[in-house]
Structure formats: structure tokens, C-alpha cells
Write a protein that binds this DNA or RNA. Structure first.
Length: 642
RNA sequence: GCCGGAUUAGCUCAGCUGGUAGAGCAACUGAUUUGUAAUCAGUAGGUCGGGGGUUCGAUUCCCUCAUCCGGCACCA
């Protein structure tokens, strides 16, 4: 007999060799039905694997996070089996579960078409209906390699050959299909159910290296039941409606066109939003004693050579020939800020010196990387560089982190991913310097109460960095804010200050941005609010409209009053039905519609309709103005007023 | 840059296997003066992304370039 310890602390005896599934059945039939795997000690096991000794035991249920992981992994195997049945010439490589589903990377000379995907999906359903038992086998390494080679599965053979010596080679068999896998898997293909769907075909390099051949990556989604699958598909549809490219067009905020790839034409409304956010952040940093500057766009190559960018970044710089000179459009403002720092002698008393710039930068990004406003070739960074003494790094870091968190919170972002990236394998500077740099940056981050994950080896070559990441509507990560500590650039461009000791010292340099780029941040901002901006940020805050032309004169008066109160207001006096106008103005996502008809004109009132609201509210004109004025106060001024 | 898909009216899209194009909305004109998410009628609008090829004939098939979309790689 063996003793099995349950999560609630209870122990029970079972015969040696009992399986997790059998144990689950003794607990309850519904539990056994929902079970997809078991946790034995800290390992996930198949339901059908015999347990030979005393263990801690837990049933992994279908809809749980880990349960879904198991399901999705099974879906990947069923996918691979279907592909091998239909297109035996295909080589399979890896097929992990991911957020919301799975993918499988396969190699085949011919490309799969969307029609092929349909066929594969049908075959997957057949395989589920066949309810093939899934069994686990432990193989000898050499035998496994030979087996996969004999099957023409060269990628699989390579994976096994590269596995660490001590690792056990486990294969899972279902029907005629055998795949290398750590497991665990469901007892049979029928357990997977039918709540899955193949989503899209993409390319991916073998082992993530662009020197390797490109494989075909097929993405799928898989869920515990049909309802969850439907919910997910609906969620995707909803998310697509928030896409900033779509809303940018619908709301007439901006456009892009072929003649200016990667650059933005801001329309009046989009530019209003842009300026509001720019001014907001300007006021925020100004309160933190940053000094705003403006530096040149076009600089001689010698500066970029001295800074090291010519070497490290040259491929991404736009070069301009001018007579016998070679100039480059700036891809970043750091070297320029150092030039300002270098003007005149700086004393330790001047530090920390915080320079800020809305720096227009041009980067020749790879064509395939461009994407709406989130990845452009021409952008404006809310850039800033803090020149300070080494002993000031921690405090400057702390202050920056607090400022950034405060900004993100004020703008409505609750979910922020923060990563701390430390020294990369190839780097400038002594290890001692890195020790100090990492310690200080981390201490500062911690002092601000920030929680972050470690991103080992991903720092810049000149120093460690903090990355602040926001998600777009469909859940993609975008780095927005950043704080990077740099001892290299001040050295290269010879920045110095006179210390208390009367001698020259190198300042430390902190590169920092809160939005990252205005373009990217606005994209995320649009998607976050689905275009329904808070009143202070709405390009048009209110619109006055009439029921009949009898209301025109009063509407003009209302319009003027609101305008005089500093509100961004428009009027719609068209001879159209009120229903039509309400619909149209609502679709434009204008926060407030002020309807005036005969009654309102006579009473000096407004029928106020809020975006998304069902009903309207009848208020005196002055009350409406007061209400909108107070709601339109930007978040950073709000607290001061209270 | 790489893999796949897409590109038709201002917008959203239809157009099977080749016979030079359609709808809805928007625009314009007229009628309608309307009480909270689409009033009616009429008019006009297209080198079917650019270039080349096959063909009697190409929006449709082939090649090529560009851009966009989804991934991959890249993102100092």
C-alpha cells in the first residue's frame, strides 16, 4: 500500500501501482470526469501513470489554468497527428501550449493554405472521435534518435540529440502517431473534446534564429468547452473593434499612406489628442524639475561615430549626403543632450541635471516590423536624460519610477508589466561598474515599491534597464516607458563635472521616457479606451445639436457659452432627424451631446446625453457648463482643486 | 529582412471556372422641420494597388514591384 496526501491535508491509503485517474474516481465521478492530469509531488503526471510510492497528490481539473495547458498541448498533438495523416511529407518540430491555445511549427516544402487548415481541422475532429488511447513510453536516446531519423523527422532527431544527458526521453503514442514529449497528456484523444479551432498560418524560424530555415507555424485555440471557445472568439472580435488603426480612421484622428511609410499624418482631432497628452506629460515633468530643450534633427556622422551609434545602430539610421559631409537623421536624442550638458563647466552643484525633449527621431525599421502607430519610422519620444553623481542614481531612479507609475495610473492603466534587464553577455564597462549600476538601479526601483520580473542578460550594452510594458487590445506587449542607466556615453562623448574635490568627474546618465513614443502611447491609449476617451482628453468634448431649426439661435448661444468656458465644443445644426444625428454623433464617440429644441430654448435648459448612456438629463445651461468644466479637469490638476 | 494572406467607389465589402464591374453607407440635389442610435426620392462617383506577360479578350491566369494585415527575426 502507499499513502496519498491530498491538498486538504488528509491522507489515504491506496494499493501500490494505482493510477491518478483511479484515485480521482474514488473521490467523485464528476471529479474523475473533469480530471485531465494529476500533480504528483511537484510534477504533472498522466492520469494513467501508476503511482508506486507515498506522494502528495492533486487532481488537475479541465478548466483550471494548468488543465487548459494540458488540453492545449493535447490539441497540438492531435494537430500533428492530423497533419501527418494528411500530409505525410511534413516534418514536425515543436508544438507548445501558449496563452489561449497552442501552435505547432512544421516543415514542408509546400505552403499550407487556409483550405488545408480546414481539412486538418476536420481530421482533428475525426481523431477526437476515434478516441485513440494515449500512452507514455520511455525510450533509449539513441534508439529514439534513430527512430525519428528513420521516419524522416530530422528536426525531432536534432531536438533529442540536444537534450541534456540526464534527461529521460519520453514518447507519447496515439494511434499510429508517436511524438517526443515530456507530457502529461490526456488518457485518450476523445478527452480533448471539440472546443478547438485552427486560427492562422505564420512563419517562424527554426529555433528562433533567422539564419535557420523558416518553418510554418500554425496557431490554434483550444478550450475546456464549446461555450468558452465561443466566448474567446467573441472577445477577439470585440478586441478588433478597438484597434487604433480602425478607430483612427473612423474617428478621423490620423492616417498613413504609401508615400510616407511609417510616418503619421495627424488630423485635427488626432493632433488635439496628441497635444493634450504632450502637454500633460510636459506639466508632469516640469513639476519634477526637468528642463525642456530642443536639439537638431540632422547631425554630422562624426558625432554618431563618437557616440558608437554609427557602429551599433548604423543600419537603422537614415543617412543624408551634403556636399562633402555625411549627415544622419537622429534616431535618438541622447548624444544631443550631452552636447548641451557639455556647454560650459558643470559643477557637482548643478547635479542632478534633468534635460527633457519631445525628440523627433527617425529610425529605418525593418519593413516587416512596421505596424500602425505602435511601430513607426518617424516618432517623437518624451525623452529625458538625467545627469547625476553615482550616489544620486538610487534616488533619481526612485523618483522616476514613482512619476511613471503615477502617470500610468492617472491615465487609467492598471496593468503594467515591469522588467528589470541586467548585464548582457556582450557589454561595455567593468564588472565592478555593472555590479554598482545594477545594485543602484534595483535599489531605486525597489524603493519606489515597484514589483518587476527579472529579464536576465537583456540589458543594453551600456547599462541595465527597467522596461515598462503595456498591452494593446489583442494582448500584445509594447514597451512604452523605460529607464536605462549608462556609464558609457558620458565617457565616449566626454561629459564631465567638477566635484567637491575640485577634480573632473564623469556623471552617470539616466535615459528615461514615460510614454516611450507619443505615437505608440497614443495607440495604446486609443485601444485602452476603445476611443471613448475621458473628457479631458477627448478631442471634441461636446456637441450642440438641434431638433428643428427653431432651436438654431439658442444652439448658437449655447455653443458660444461652452466655447467661452474653454470647452472643445462643436455644433450640428443640420436639418436631419434627431435620431439620425444622435446615432451619428454617438458613433463618433463624442462624450456629450447637448440637444436643444423648442422647450430647452424657452426654459434656458439643455437635454444632456452622455456617451453610452440610455437616457438624457434636463439641466440648466449653467449647470451643464459647470458639470463639464469640472469633469474636464485633467487628472493631475484634479487633486489640487479638491 | 523572412513566411503566409490581402489590395475593387470616400468607407465597408460582393464579383464561381477569363467576355472591361455591383451593393450598403457617405457625398451632391430636391422633398421633409422631425424630441434621443439610420426619413424618402434622385444624381454623380471606379485605368479593379503600379508595371510587365499569356490570350482575340485579363479585375479574374502568370511574373514582378509597392503597400497593408498576421506571425517570425529585429526593437540600441
Amino acid at each position: 500500500m502507499i499513502t496519498v496526501r491530498f491538498p486538504d491535508g488528509l491522507n489515504r491509503e491506496f494499493p501500490k501501482g494505482i493510477t491518478g485517474w483511479e484515485i480521482a474516481k474514488t473521490l467523485s465521478t464528476s471529479l474523475a470526469k473533469e480530471a485531465v492530469a494529476v500533480r504528483i509531488e511537484n510534477e504533472l503526471w498522466d492520469l494513467t501513470r501508476p503511482i508506486e510510492k507515498d506522494v502528495a497528490f492533486e487532481v488537475i481539473k479541465r478548466p483550471s489554468e494548468i488543465g487548459l495547458d494540458v488540453l492545449r498541448h493535447d490539441a497540438a498533438h492531435v494537430f500533428a497527428e492530423a497533419v501527418k495523416e494528411l500530409y505525410p511529407e511534413t516534418q514536425i518540430t515543436i508544438g507548445p501550449s501558449i496563452q489561449d491555445g497552442f501552435y505547432y511549427d512544421v516543415f514542408r516544402e509546400e505552403s499550407f493554405t487556409p483550405e488545408d487548415l480546414k481539412r486538418i481541422e476536420e481530421r482533428m475532429h475525426e481523431i477526437v472521435n476515434r478516441d485513440e488511447p494515449v500512452t507514455r513510453e520511455v525510450w533509449d536516446r539513441t534508439k529514439a534518435i534513430d527512430f525519428f531519423k528513420s521516419q524522416g523527422e530530422l528536426f525531432k532527431a536534432e531536438i533529442i540529440a540536444d537534450l541534456p544527458e540526464e534527461s529521460e526521453i519520453t514518447l507519447y503514442r496515439q494511434g499510429n502517431f508517436v511524438d517526443l514529449c515530456r507530457g502529461p497528456h490526456l488518457p485518450s484523444t476523445g478527452k480533448l473534446g471539440h472546443a478547438f479551432k485552427l486560427m492562422k498560418i505564420a512563419g517562424a524560424y527554426w529555433r528562433g534564429d533567422h539564419n535557420n530555415p523558416m518553418l510554418q507555424r500554425i496557431y490554434g485555440t483550444a478550450w475546456s468547452n464549446e461555450k468558452d471557445l465561443q466566448t474567446y472568439l467573441t472577445r477577439l472580435e470585440e478586441a478588433e473593434k478597438r484597434d487604433h488603426r480602425k478607430l483612427g480612421k473612423e474617428m478621423n484622428l490620423f492616417h498613413m499612406q504609401e508615400e510616407a511609410v511609417g510616418s503619421v499624418f495627424w488630423h485635427p482631432k488626432g493632433w488635439t489628442l496628441y497635444r493634450l497628452l504632450e502637454n500633460y506629460i510636459r506639466e508632469k515633468i516640469s513639476a519634477e524639475d526637468y528642463l525642456e530643450v530642443k536639439t537638431p534633427q540632422l547631425l554630422d556622422s562624426s558625432l554618431w561615430e563618437a557616440s558608437g551609434h554609427w557602429d551599433k545602430f548604423g543600419e537603422n539610421m537614415f543617412i543624408v549626403k551634403d556636399e562633402d559631409k555625411t549627415l544622419a537623421l537622429k534616431p535618438m536624442s541622447c548624444p544631443c543632450h550631452i552636447q548641451i550638458f557639455r556647454q560650459g563647466l558643470k559643477s557637482y552643484r548643478d547635479l542632478p541635471l534633468r534635460l527633457a525633449e519631445f525628440g523627433a527621431c527617425m529610425r529605418n525599421e525593418p519593413s516587416g516590423a512596421l505596424q500602425g502607430l505602435t511601430r513607426v519610422r518617424s516618432m517623437v519620444q518624451d525623452d529625458g536624460h538625467i545627469f547625476c553623481r553615482e550616489d544620486q542614481i538610487k534616488e533619481e531612479t526612485r523618483k522616476f519610477c514613482l512619476l511613471l507609475l503615477n502617470v500610468y495610473r492617472e491615465l487609467g492603466f492598471e496593468e503594467i508589466i515591469v522588467k528589470f534587464s541586467d548585464r548582457p553577455p556582450v557589454r561595455a564597462g567593468e564588472d565592478e561598474v555593472w555590479d554598482k549600476a545594477e545594485a543602484q538601479l534595483e535599489a531605486g526601483a525597489r524603493a519606489s515599491g515597484l514589483s518587476y520580473t527579472l529579464n536576465p542578460g537583456e540589458g543594453a550594452f551600456y547599462g541595465p534597464k527597467l522596461e515598462f510594458i503595456l498591452k494593446d487590445a489583442i494582448g500584445r506587449d509594447w514597451q512604452c516607458g523605460t529607464l536605462q542607466l549608462d556609464f558609457v556615453l558620458p565617457e565616449r562623448l566626454d561629459a564631465s563635472y567638477i566635484g567637491e574635490d575640485g577634480k573632473k568627474h564623469r556623471p552617470a546618465m539616466l535615459h528615461r521616457a514615460i510614454f516611450g513614443s507619443l505615437e505608440r502611447f497614443i495607440a495604446i491609449f486609443i485601444e485602452h479606451y476603445a476611443g471613448k476617451f475621458p473628457l479631458w482628453a477627448a478631442p471634441v468634448q461636446a456637441i450642440v445639436t438641434t431638433i428643428t431649426q427653431e432651436g438654431d439661435a439658442y444652439a448658437e448661444k449655447v455653443f458660444e457659452k461652452l466655447q467661452a468656458a474653454g470647452l472643445r465644443v462643436e455644433k450640428d445644426l443640420r436639418n436631419e432627424k434627431i435620431n439620425y444625428k444622435i446615432r451619428e454623433l454617438s458613433l463618433q464617440k463624442i462624450p456629450y451631446i447637448l440637444v436643444v429644441g423648442k422647450r430647452e430654448a424657452e426654459d434656458g435648459t439643455i437635454a444632456l446625453r452622455k456617451l453610452g448612456g440610455e437616457a438624457q438629463e434636463i439641466l440648466a445651461l449653467q449647470d451643464v457648463i459647470d458639470k463639464l468644466e469640472s469633469e474636464a479637469i485633467p487628472p493631475h490638476k484634479r487633486k489640487l482643486m479638491e
